[in-house]
Design a binder for these strands. Structure first.
Length: 813
DNA sequence: AGCACGCCGACT
DNA sequence: GTCGGCGTGCTC
């Protein structure tokens, strides 16, 4: 430490994501920023020869750095992150093996990510009459024309290279400015109001020269409506120009004010104010279970396992209400918020503008506004998809994860993280209660509840005591034997007819994953595959093309088999379009709403289709998984699952769990209100325990069986797993890299930790890139600082082949 | 990630 | 001899 004068040092995560930069760099805090710069502040710093933004993570007493550069500037008045979130980002980075700066970026709205520009211009005293190379003449003529140029634009010119630019700068013939900024579109709008009281205004209006009738008009307007008005509205209302208003503000009669505008995406909608509903005794018990640790401010986790229709949401609402009364804040995580408008409405209805909603459908500005309402303390409840777990609250009392088992809580790109695990961590930091609600917990969560890690509370009754629908499993092999070659079994077909004749609605679920319409040759059995991915092309009737699900490749349908030339090729499998056609054939005049990737591409399309169905504008809702989520349509009395076992045979240890969850969830959609429901599940392997037990409402036996299976094959929750996925356009290079990786890691592994592979990934090629994976299974808790974990951490960037891509996934803990 | 430094081949 | 290729190493 410098003994002569005390320096204030800030440790900064600089916005450069690389292996060597994923650490803290110390900077000197200039005198005028001492006290302003805080943990979580965004600052501008010089880094090497560049200027970048960074996040302040701490203020060390001393430094080992050979020299300290000063912090160049503070980017926000209020730090975008709290100290707790900075510590959390370090934990997430350590746990999911990624650079801290990636996590920090994921915690704030995208508009706060740094934007960097390097701008070139001609200095005022720059010489011009020098011999010019080709690049120089291009550069200078363009610069004279435009005044300034981005460095990347300059480098695109012929003959312009980095060394040339450097030389020009050294010679003083070119100047470079680094600009660091962010994409905040601060929507400040001008408001106008009276600056004097009515008496004064009236006098002033009379004293105005007679020709100033516009000004008089404005004053009269404010005499009638003394409240503030948006400048733009005032101008439009009176048909005047801004200068008139300016005159009056200059005279001090009117007052103008720049106000931050919050763009409330829900502003045009009315929400029905809702009151707390009386709780059933089961709900009351669940509520009490939350209340005890909440009041004690104790870090506590509860699995709230409640059947569909058991009224979990009301329990959430009342627990949140209690949290807010304690002066604390609450986060509600939902799987995909655009699919749960009903849920959002209930929260807004109960808590009004205290609710901030964060979802992917918002524009960057809207998202920023909602986030800032959380940050400023204006909002005390945050509801949103997984990233809402990072809501910048300072005193969290309660975090709710609805539909805890949903896969969307896991982020599949860097920074990879699981919102449930992050929520657990935040609850520990805040002394908060975590409530995980679901009818069908993930096997991991079930196991933790079972073994005492979580408190386990169940809701077994439906709120209005309605019976569960009867589930009929149909063996499609027998249907075939009986001569029924249709997509629809006789029970489903009959049920559908009866349901529609009664004027009721039906939901048909087609589990498209791994099962869609493809083209197959009847002579040689060959299918038409994507030229760039190892996967069959899917037939799209709308435009008569074959399309690749993974890369978007599209081609026409061949008239003959590309392999053997036979003309006997035909479509196989079942897509939603095909089901729709078959429905039209079978029940003419039937009104069908189809929900799949084709019909829900556009923003807000989901909501529109669901609303239309809810309003009874169709008899049948036909769709993929997305329709199984928490929707509540009172007139649905029949649910049909076209093929329950399509995902059962995927190479994924979660296949059985997913099947069970889907069938249970979708069954809950039938007969939720006055009418009794019925569920028909079609399957080719109805004897599989996931289908059998879902149909029999045997949840507990299913989880026990699944745990036994997982234990036997060593899968989570009986081990933790890292999955290394490597991809490369060259198969040979990939094989070599993968084997090299396996060879280098294997000797580092402690006993009890095993490396499996390398083996081809479930989809061995996507977009002309071959894919190979390595799995590492370990027991218990691991030391994140150990050599082998560090080696995994380095895998992503620690190679020199630009064509090689590596991702490291972690699950199971 | 960039960008400097540094050591090698192909031109003026 | 100089320009410019990309390997290596550093950025408080």
């Amino acid at each position: 430490m410098n003994g002569t004068k005390t320096r204030k040092i800030a440790a900064v995560y600089v916005d450069v994501a690389a292996e060597g930069t994923d650490k803290l760099f110390d900077y000197e805090v200039p005198d005028d920023l001492v006290g302003e710069v805080r943990i979580g502040s965004r600052v501008q710093v010089s880094f090497g020869s560049r200027k970048r933004m960074g996040y302040v993570a701490g203020f060390p007493e001393s430094t080992t750095a050979p020299r300290l550069k000063p912090i160049l500037g503070l980017m926000d008045l209020v730090p975008p992150l709290t100290p707790e979130l900075v510590r959390l980002s370090e934990w997430v980075a350590r746990t999911w093996l990624c650079p801290v700066i990636h996590v920090l970026h994921a915690m704030v709205p995208a508009v706060l990510k740094g934007r960097y520009q390097r701008v070139l211009s001609i200095p005022p005293d720059g010489e011009t009459s020098v011999l010019l190379s080709e690049g120089e003449s291009h550069l200078f003529s363009l610069l004279r024309e435009k005044g300034e140029l981005l460095q990347e634009e300059a480098l695109a010119l012929p003959g312009v290279t980095r060394p040339l630019l450097r030389r020009l700068v050294e010679e003083g013939r070119l100047s470079v400015e680094e600009r660091v900024g962010d994409g905040i579109t601060s929507r400040r709008r001008t408001w106008i109001g009276p600056a004097m009281d009515a008496e004064v205004l009236r006098e002033a209006a009379e004293e105005l020269p007679s020709q100033a009738f516009r000004q008089r008009e404005v004053l009269n307007f404010f005499l009638k409506h003394p409240e503030d008005i948006l400048l733009s509205h005032l101008l439009a209302a009176l048909g005047i120009s801004r200068s008139t208003v300016d005159r009056l503000t200059e005279k001090g009669l009117l007052r103008r004010e720049e106000r931050e505008e919050y763009r409330d995406p829900y502003v045009d909608r009315s929400f029905n104010r809702s009151r707390p509903l009386p709780l059933t005794s089961e709900q009351q018990q669940a509520f009490d279970a939350i209340l005890v640790p909440l009041r004690q401010r104790k870090d506590h986790a509860i699995l709230l396992q409640g059947v569909t229709g058991s009224g979990k949401t009301e329990v959430y609402l009342q627990a949140i209400s209690e949290t807010l009364e304690m002066g604390r804040q609450a986060i509600v995580l939902v799987p995909e918020i655009s699919l749960t408008p009903q849920m959002v409405e209930r929260f807004k209805g109960r808590f009004g503008s205290q609710v901030a909603v964060l979802h992917s459908g918002l524009s960057g500005g809207e998202r920023f506004d909602e986030w800032r309402r959380i940050q400023s303390g204006e909002a005390t409840v945050a509801i949103g998809a997984r990233s809402a777990v990072f809501a910048p609250f300072t005193d969290i009392g309660l975090i709710i994860i609805d539909e805890e088992h949903e896969g969307s809580y896991k982020q599949e790109e860097t920074p990879r993280y699981h919102a449930r695990e992050v929520a657990r961590r935040r609850c520990a930091d805040h002394g908060a209660v975590l409530v995980m609600g679901t009818a069908t917990p993930s096997v991991e969560t079930y196991f933790r509840a079972r073994t005492g890690g979580y408190q386990w509370v169940t809701l077994t009754e439906r709120v209005h005591g309605r019976p569960f629908p009867q589930i009929e499993v149909v063996d499609m092999r027998e249907e075939l034997r009986a001569g029924n070659r249709s997509i629809f079994s006789r029970p489903l077909s009959d049920g559908l007819t009866a349901c529609v004749n009664r004027g009721e609605q039906a939901v048909l679920l087609l589990n498209r994953r791994g099962y869609s319409t493809f083209v197959m040759c009847r002579e040689c059995g060959g299918t038409v595959e994507c030229p760039r991915c190892d996967i069959s092309l899917t037939y799209h009737r709308t435009n008569g093309t074959l399309r690749c699900h993974y890369c978007g490749h599209a081609e026409g349908v061949p008239k003959s088999c590309p392999t053997c030339g036979s003309i006997h090729i035909r479509y196989f499998g079942t897509g939603t379009q095909r089901v729709e056609e078959e429905l039209a054939k079978r029940l003419p005049g039937l009104r069908v709403i189809r929900m799949d990737v084709d019909t829900t591409n556009r923003k807000g399309a989901h909501e529109k289709l669901l609303t239309a169905f809810g309003e009874g504008k169709a008899d049948v809702l036909l769709g993929t998984q997305m329709i199984a989520k928490g929707l509540d349509f009172p007139r649905v009395t029949l649910v049909g699952v076209i093929a329950a076992d399509t995902m059962l045979h995927l190479p994924d240890y979660r296949a059985a769990e997913r099947t069970f969850q889907l069938l249970t969830q979708v069954s809950g959609r039938a007969g939720r209100h006055e009418m009794a429901g019925k569920v028909v599940v079609q399957a080719y392997t109805p004897e599989h325990y996931s289908i059998r037990m879902a149909a029999a409402y045997e949840g507990e036996p299913f989880y026990r069986e699944e745990c036994r299976t997982r234990k036997r094959h060593r899968y989570p929750p009986f081990c933790g797993m890292f999955k290394v996925l490597m991809s490369h356009p060259d198969r040979g290079a990939l094989m070599q890299a993968a084997h090299q990786t396996a060879r280098s890691i294997t000797p580092l592994l402690p006993s009890g930790t095993e490396l499996l592979g390398p083996v081809p990934a479930p989809i061995p090629r996507i977009k002309d890139r071959y894919r190979i994976q390595i799995m590492i299974k370990y027991d218990n808790h691991i030391d994140e600082e150990s050599e082998w974990v560090d080696a995994l951490r380095r895998l992503r960037t620690g190679h020199t082949d630009p064509n090689l891509r590596v991702s490291v996934d972690r699950e199971g803990f």
